[in-house]
Design a protein around this nucleic acid. Structure first.
Ligand SMILES: [Zn+2]
Ligand SMILES: [Zn+2]
Ligand SMILES: [Zn+2]
Ligand SMILES: [Zn+2]
Lengths: 154, 154
DNA sequence: AAGATAATGACAATCATTCTCGATAATGGT
DNA sequence: ACCATTATCGAGAATGATTGTCATTATCTT
């Protein structure tokens, strides 16, 4: 796609970009990296990947980019048991959903549960709560990791 | 610090104590405090409460006590969105359950959802996962906090 | 092209939680 | 009771993820 010299037709604000935000090399790098990673990763892991890839992006910038993308709903965030935030690009525009995550390798599967959605909302409302939300994550050992798991302690 | 010459009597050896563990004034203080608090609180909040109550217990000790109690299943832990761990004594021996928590005041209601339990397990198994577990928390504004909530922006 | 200002990056600052290690005190046996 | 053993304590240092600062770029509008 050749760029027309006339300056008045490049105005397409790509896809969801909040007004006032700018497209930078760094944010593009983070966004692209997320396309090639399939599991939940921490900000620092992603920062390392960028570095090893030759990309030079500051750690704080990676944090800011991830937070912006998460706020915009472009990526998912889960809180690991150690308190770290883990990020992952989710099926585009899929909206609200949950995850089944392997405790060992991080393999992630997106899951939907309409019944659970209804139930959690009902629980809140029945107790007089408004603006009800929830968190739900399923963990386990995937087939691969379970196979190599050694003898369980008695 | 004048201590009463008569020996201290902290001898309540409550119910279940793992072998090799000792009953101390500090742990008793934390345990008792949790009985009087009804919402999820952070380790530091509990530490402050102890201090204001005249009890003198080190912060690290509070952390250790809470972790021990959580590991023993005597109290519940949830991860706040800021990464902090929040602790609460749950209905004794109730076993696995979930929580409906007010985002503002922390009011907590324990909830059970047998159907959700079955569903999460099935999702894991259907995808070849074993040793399946899950986290589920419901958040919202309780009636009281919703009433004092200001006008929502348009 | 020029100006306004969002965004960056190197580094300091937070802040919850964990670690260190000498001091203290709970336990079990005598 | 007394003592030896050793879990536990406490004060402060250390850790580690995340956030703030601010001078310097780079993007976008005009
Ligand atoms: Zn796995
Ligand atoms: Zn949901
Ligand atoms: Zn409330
Ligand atoms: Zn459950």
């Amino acid at each position: 796609m050749a760029a027309p010299p006339t300056g008045s037709d490049v105005r397409s604000t790509p896809i969801g970009r909040a007004s006032g935000t700018r497209a930078t090399r760094q944010r593009a790098a983070v966004a692209e990296l997320l396309l090639s990673v399939d599991d939940f990763r921490s900000a620092q892991q992603l920062h390392d990947l960028l570095r090893h890839d030759g990309q030079n992006v500051g750690l704080a910038t990676v944090y800011r980019a991830l937070q912006a993308m998460a706020a915009a709903g472009d990526i998912d965030v889960i809180l690991a048991s150690n308190g770290q935030s883990l990020y992952r690009r989710c099926g585009q525009g899929t909206g609200h959903h949950h995850h089944l995550v392997c405790r060992v390798c991080g393999l992630t599967i997106e899951v939907d549960g309409p019944a659970v959605e209804r139930w959690t909302h009902k629980v809140g409302v029945d107790n007089g709560f408004v603006d009800v939300s929830h968190t739900l994550d399923i963990f386990g050992l995937c087939r691969t990791c379970a196979a190599r798991a050694p003898s369980p302690l008695p």
